[in-house]
Structure formats: structure tokens, C-alpha cells
Amino acid sequence: MSEIQWTDAASFDEVPADDVIGKIVDGRDLALYNVEGEVFATDNLCTHGHARLCEGFLEGHEIECPLHQGKFDVRNGAPTCAPVTEAIRSYPVKIEAGRVYLALG
């Protein structure tokens, strides 16, 4: 079993409380969410309408797509509201020394 490779994605302070930001990390368009002090990461592109989720509305653990109001659970990428039916990819996150690290592999 190989060791997890962690990629430095952002400063913890860059991810506003109870909000979402878009970041390009290793060439990937990702969304970083801060929900009650815990950071989550997913792909930034909606699987239904190809809109950037960082432009959507975060409420609790759900991000609403700005295009057709489909929703995803930011903890695991699962769709939670129509018209979304396909999950987005989510990534493991760790916080260390004020930095947000992602396992992109």
C-alpha cells in the first residue's frame, strides 16, 4: 500500500468561514469549503450544468449550483437535490500548521 501524497492547496485563512472558494491546485479546478471550522474539498465543476460551484451558495454541508440549483454534499460529493444525479469527486483534507493539504491521488 502506498503512502498518501498530500498537496498544499491553501492557507486555512484563505477559506472564509461558512463559505466556498475556488482554487487551481496541481492543474485541477477545485472548490474548498469551510463549514463550522472544518474544511472540505471537491471538484469545482457541477456534473449537471458545468457551472463552477465556488459561485454557488453554501448552506451547511450543501453547495447549491449557481446554474440550475442542484445540490451536493461537500463532505462526500453526493448529489442531494435534483436536477443533479451524478456525484462530484471529493478529496481527503488535512490541516497542518495553518495550511490546507489535499490528497489528490
Rank of each mutant, 00 (worst) to 15 (best):
M1I: 11
M1L: 12
S2G: 14
S2M: 12
E3A: 15
E3I: 12
E3R: 14
I4G: 02
Q5K: 14
D8A: 12
D8S: 13
A9Y: 10
A9V: 06
A10I: 06
D13T: 13
E14N: 09
V15M: 08
V15E: 00
P16E: 11
A17I: 10
D18L: 04
D19C: 06
D19K: 15
V25N: 01
D26H: 12
D26V: 05
G27K: 08
D29V: 08
D29N: 15
A31C: 14
Y33L: 07
N34V: 05
E38K: 15
V39K: 01
F40T: 02
T42P: 03
N44C: 00
N44M: 11
L45C: 12
L45E: 08
H48W: 12
H50I: 01
A51S: 15
L53A: 04
L53K: 10
L53M: 12
C54N: 12
C54M: 05
F57A: 07
L58W: 06
L58M: 12
L58T: 04
E59W: 08
E59F: 06
G60Y: 05
H61V: 08
H61E: 12
I63R: 06
I63K: 04
E64A: 06
E64G: 07
E64Y: 04
C65A: 03
P66D: 02
P66G: 09
L67Q: 10
L67A: 10
Q69T: 12
G70I: 00
G70F: 03
G70P: 00
K71G: 05
F72G: 01
F72D: 09
D73T: 10
D73P: 06
R75K: 13
R75P: 00
R75F: 01
R75Q: 11
G77W: 00
A78S: 12
A78L: 13
A78Y: 05
P79N: 01
T80D: 03
T80Q: 13
C81S: 13
A82S: 10
P83D: 02
V84F: 09
V84K: 02
T85Q: 14
E86F: 11
A87Y: 01
I88V: 13
Y91E: 10
Y91S: 01
P92Y: 07
V93G: 03
K94Y: 06
E96V: 11
A97E: 14
R99C: 10
V100R: 01
Y101M: 15
L102A: 05
L102I: 06
L104D: 02
G105I: 02
